[in-house]
Design a binder for these strands. Sequence first.
RNA 1: CGGGGCAUAGCGCAGUCUGGUAGCGCGUCUGCUUUGGGAGCAGAAGGUCGCAGGUUCGAAUCCUGCUGCCCCGACCA
Length: 440
Amino acid sequence: MRLSRYFLPILREPPREAEIVSHRLMLRAGMMRQEAAGIYAFLPLGFRVLQKICRIVREEQDRSGAIEMLMPTIQSADLWRESGRYDAYGKEMLRIQDRHEREMLFGPTNEEMITEIFRAYVRSYKDLPLNLYHLQWKFRDEVRPRFGLMRGREFLMKDAYSFDIDQAGAQHSYNKMFVAYLRTFARLGLKSIPMRAETGPIGGNLSHEFIILASTGESEVFCHKDYLDMAVPDQDVDFENVAGLQQIVDKWTSHYAATSDMHDAEAFARIEPHNQVSARGIEVGHIFYFGTKYSAPMKAVVATGEGGEVPVHMGSYGIGPSRLVDDIIEASHDDAGIIWPEPVAPFKVAVLNLKQGAAETDGACGELYRDLTAKGVEVLYDDRDERAGGKFATADLIGIPWQVLVGPKGLAEGKVEVKNRATGSRETMSPAAALDLLSK
RNA sequence: CGGGGCAUAGCGCAGUCUGGUAGCGCGUCUGCUUUGGGAGCAGAAGGUCGCAGGUUCGAAUCCUGCUGCCCCGACCA
């Protein structure tokens, strides 16, 4: 992409309403625009990051055996009356009426709908286990939206729903998501720690929040230091191996880890002081097992092998990709701007033409841009008629992992400079060597 | 939902107390000079001063009502 032809409305100063660093950086980097309290438009750069996050989330859901579908944003109130949550949910639910004055709502979550779909088709234990997920916009009318995307009202959510014949099966389904989440967050460049969580209005008794540590986190968290460098299951983990998966989950739940609501000061105090971590954290994912809370009242039952029928055991599993854009920035930035982990970066390489309009730099940049693109590398070519300093500042701000600095000085010796955004390290090399390094 | 604050050009702000027909920096546009970490000079464009009433010869400024947004707290899959 040529920057001169792109839509990247950079701001030198962040708008006053933005308080936390990720919100300020997203606005400055031209990634999003607020349209109303807690409601945002994703501009092209932000959208690219969101798409990268979604792709990784999908790949790991699919790998674990979950199946993607898509449910609507608008739901009927009657569905929610069946589970009893229409009255229980409160003002956080956005209720609307259609032209026939039928009561509808903008879905804050989809347990009722997925249960309705399940019961319409699935009758036998032979069709289980089943895990269906989708990525869809949700709306929760928060009393006080804040922190940009982190506490927005409209947000994109990946929600998965598992169905099993009994609790043992549900435990395995839960473990699958547990492992998928560990892998997902690691691939997003985040160190996530599963913490025992309260189950909230969803109900149930087995639940973990996945927390990342960030100084600007919303809540206080406490955990054992060993979590910080525990090995994440690799990509050939066997999701059908019940015992193997349980072992991984056991390992990841063996140490103390809790948010402030669940904190047990005595248990924490028993950890050797040098292994105690007390920090601020951001919730990036939440998984629940809630048994028959919805299947029983909504009569989602399946035939057992013994001739009877039982309500299915369900769990639900959420990740907020739109929030993660913010969360990743909170966890990865410096004074100059965003530092994207490579897997979610909007572009992998920024080519900076330090002397726009000069034949030698224009030529070298044009070639690099063409060759990198031909090799499938996502390149943002800064070909604006800007001074070098402005290009450096822009590239640092928007956090592209690799910058190739192409200027007359270097080119006189046949060299360009390759800079790594995260480490700040620079290396001088020939354009051919840069092409080789960056297209690996 | 309780408490506090803000609303003036794309962004950041001054002007409001003490009414007199709107200004600064950045950005944008033009030209010249510059050119490896946000350049200099000269010129230009850009504003129903959040909305609606009221007071007044005259309102960004005073009064009333409304709306939007932000912060603290409570709330929060």
